[in-house]
Design a protein around this nucleic acid. Structure first.
Lengths: 131, 131
DNA sequence: ATTTATTGTAAGGTAAACCTAACTAATTGT
DNA sequence: ACAATTAGTTAGGTTTACCTTACAATAAAT
């Protein structure tokens, strides 16, 4: 299973590549304020798990499996972020920071309920405002 | 700062003592499925932080400071548990398990909002049912 | 084209939170 | 009372996720 750190790195890799940008090991080091050797190690681990293809300076590519995994993580993040910011009206930065921490520990069953609840709540609120 | 593990152990110590029961190192080991030496070490650490008074076989006592800290943790747990079980209608066991994990990472600001939201939501639902 | 700066790797270290095995002290059963 | 069991400690080991220092390879600047 993927650790919190690896999930974070994969998330950033996917998001960067999605924007047609290139991501390098040093970008991950800077983003998460960890050393270059630690990133090196983490990337090798992600490659061992077939989530990325890592060829050092030649670049970082994400695999099919990596995309699936990254999307799962981002989906968790987005559900939590939406609930925090739109339902609870929490400031974006704090909503994001907490989504980032909770996305690694919450069970799918709970996440699904939050998702359903959020959608319903936001829809109902919108209907109410029409009257 | 208290780590996840130490928070969990302190929580159990407080809850057990609150019920006028005696808690021993081995109870903590059994509850969390960790070894006796690991508990020994953790209790020394909690004592170093002035959260408990630990005298080996003579027993574990909780300090004023420990009570304050434990109550904070339990409060977080209860807020999350109530939200999960009463608002989201999640099964007790899963609600408890997730509260247990999230209580260690969530920010106070988010917790407060969840608390307010839960109370309001439950109250409104009760009023609706009266009509 | 060389020098300089940047990026990545290798080697080895640290701290946290666990572990096992072996020992000691205290409690319990007969 | 004393043997057996239980509880806690000591000593030393493992794993994970970091770190620093030093080096190698590539890219950029002059």
């Amino acid at each position: 299973m993927l650790t919190k750190g690896l999930e974070d790195y994969l998330e950033l890799i996917y998001q960067t590549i999605s924007k047609n940008k290139v991501i390098k090991a040093i970008d991950i080091a800077n983003e998460f304020k960890i050393s270059r050797p630690s990133v090196s190690e983490a990337l090798i681990r992600l490659a061992d798990l077939d989530l990325i293809i890592y060829e050092g300076r030649k670049g970082i590519k994400i695999t099919e499996k990596g995309v699936v995994e990254a999307k799962k993580i981002i989906n968790r993040h987005n559900i939590l972020f939406k609930f925090f910011s739109e339902v609870l009206k929490i400031d974006y930065q704090i909503a994001d920071k907490n989504a980032c921490k909770i996305e690694h520990v919450i069970d799918d069953e709970v996440l699904d309920k939050i998702h359903q609840f959020s959608e319903l709540y936001i829809k109902n609120r919108a209907n109410k405002e029409l009257n």
